[in-house]
Simulated scan of single mutants.
Amino acid sequence: MDRAGETWRWAAFDALGGREVRDLLKLRADVFVVEQACAFAEIDGRDPAALHLLCEIDGELAGCLRVFAPEASGGAARIGRVATARAFRGAGLGHRLMAEALRLCTERWPASAVDLSAQAHLASFYGRHGFTSVSDAYLEDDIAHVDMRRAASVAA
């Protein structure tokens, strides 16, 4: 998966170094709080229960996401906090992040569906990865969202 100048890493939150935690939280705040002008508790206390995917390009955090095991998220694996730094958008990094997250979910929890809460305008992005809407649109932090699910890769 790595391309020249790229480093991809899965890590538990407690295994991240201080700089990695800072870069992760800064990227998510830049995207979800600053760019989207949305004041909300981005640091929600759930990071220690998740596995984190970090993609660095030339030493800079370019994208990240977190994944929760089914037992930590109510019966289905859950992907969240998918973020790509502005400077790295438009080259397919978001799709590569999602493909890697789904690879991990399929490998670790093949009998589990995968859930996520998508900003409504990104439903087609997630649809390209096999997700379908399972709720009507609702407001979360004044942004329209929709719950989406991808069926388990193997029958339970």
Score class of each variant (00 low, 15 high):
40 F>M: 04
126 Y>T: 04
95 H>R: 15
68 F>D: 00
45 G>E: 07
103 R>V: 07
104 L>C: 06
43 I>H: 11
78 R>Q: 15
59 G>M: 09
110 P>N: 03
74 G>H: 00
147 D>A: 15
143 I>K: 10
87 A>T: 00
66 R>M: 02
43 I>Q: 09
12 A>R: 14
53 L>D: 01
105 C>W: 01
25 L>Y: 03
78 R>K: 15
116 L>Y: 09
75 G>V: 04
88 F>I: 10
140 E>F: 05
137 A>M: 14
1 M>R: 14
68 F>S: 01
103 R>D: 03
93 L>M: 08
117 S>Q: 14
74 G>S: 01
64 C>V: 13
98 M>A: 04
124 S>N: 15
79 I>P: 06
133 S>N: 03
65 L>S: 08
155 A>S: 14
77 A>Q: 11
63 G>Q: 01
14 D>I: 12
140 E>M: 05
115 D>W: 06
91 A>R: 14
126 Y>Q: 10
83 A>F: 05
85 A>R: 00
145 H>T: 00
2 D>V: 09
144 A>M: 14
44 D>K: 12
102 L>R: 05
86 R>Y: 08
3 R>C: 07
106 T>F: 00
98 M>E: 05
133 S>C: 11
59 G>V: 10
21 V>T: 10
32 F>W: 06
34 V>W: 07
138 Y>P: 06
1 M>F: 12
107 E>Y: 09
129 H>N: 00
3 R>G: 03
28 R>M: 07
38 C>L: 09
144 A>C: 07
127 G>W: 04
20 E>H: 03
71 E>M: 14
94 G>C: 13
